[in-house]
Design a protein around this nucleic acid. Sequence first.
DNA 1: ATAGCTGCAAAGCTTTTGCAATCCA
DNA 2: TGGATTGCAAAAGCTTTGCAGCTAT
Lengths: 149, 149
Amino acid sequence: LKREKPMKIPDSLIKQIKISDQRLTKQKELVLSVLVSNKDRMLSAQEIMNQIPKTESIDFATVYRNLNAFLEIGIVEQTVDMNGRGLYKIACEADAKNHHHFICLICGKVKAIPCDKRFIGDISEKYGFEESFHTLEIFGKCEECLKKE
Amino acid sequence: LKREKPMKIPDSLIKQIKISDQRLTKQKELVLSVLVSNKDRMLSAQEIMNQIPKTESIDFATVYRNLNAFLEIGIVEQTVDMNGRGLYKIACEADAKNHHHFICLICGKVKAIPCDKRFIGDISEKYGFEESFHTLEIFGKCEECLKKE
DNA sequence: ATAGCTGCAAAGCTTTTGCAATCCA
DNA sequence: TGGATTGCAAAAGCTTTGCAGCTAT
């Protein structure tokens, strides 16, 4: 995956960090910057590390600690890939509570799909379950990659 | 999770192993026996190990090698839990190609849900994706656990 | 000043691999 | 018999943790 040009970190994120009892450090900015610059992609800790300029220094432990800190205050979301590696992305407002992902197997881009509550509700009712939460991920080729073929 | 009483391994499974170039060893029987005795549950390698009688001896490496061997010939399925740990279960015939899971957060039982191709097809079409495969897991309380409340 | 944060090193967990010995077909 | 399989030990990945020093507020 190519390295994206670093983007400015939105004030809203900064604010959410300050509201919590967390401090905004240089290292947190580095991690956030990568996440913001790839906001429609899920990145592993390693990939985040790769996108941090070599002129900056940051430890893997710090990357993980910060990702966990971000998860706690809800500004980052996590999934796990097929091999059990953690993947992270900025939790953008639009993604809100319940949504799913389409993940392009070619370019790696992720698109949020709004959740069809009714569909899941129908299934659960039919089988007598009480749903607490669910996951739905669709893998395939995205519109852009299909065009390029 | 409680240890289940060991069940006889169905002939169909034995046959599938013999058809492939694999050999049926004591260790494979041990692993298969645990999987068969918990056929509606997803187990980690550790849990499988725990259910093997202490009188028997088997190495973790062997458990993993066998699970991978079973995956290859399709008699076992794998998922990954929230922490990235691998979970395994016998792939029962009914589960066939495309199905999903309801996973009870109380008792850990898994029920297969047939896949509604149309639903996924509609979504993909709507957003211009070409679907390759997808995952859908619903977590909550199953009928039995709801009754016990 | 003082919590929180960082780097470093070490440890933890799950899973894989190399190798010599062993077992099944 | 000979290739598949096993146990053991070691290593490999990813992630977490302990600690002493550093930093943001």
